[in-house]
């Protein structure tokens, strides 16, 4: 499982780094920073939940 973030869409709600801090961090402005590109198998559920809860639909999963 791979993650992508569309930074043009990200508005800094911070749901992703609240829900899955192992996968997402925040930059200086509170926007999303990917901490990993490939999600470890143990965290795929959490990755999905983070993507699902992004109000801007900025997180993509492949």
């Amino acid at each position: 499982m791979k993650l992508r973030v569309d930074l043009d869409l990200c508005a800094g709600h911070g749901r992703c780094y609240e829900i899955a801090p192992e996968l997402f961090g925040e930059d200086e402005a509170g926007h999303c920073v990917l901490l990993v590109e490939t999600v470890p198998p143990a965290l795929t559920d959490r990755a999905r939940r983070a993507a699902d809860n992004c109000p801007e639909s900025a997180i993509g999963i492949e």
Binding site: G12, G14, E26, E28, A29, G30
Partner: peptide, 12 residues
Amino acid sequence: YRKILDSQFTKK
């Protein structure tokens, strides 16, 4: 404006 304000209101 958000560029200069956002940094002051992050979770951290």
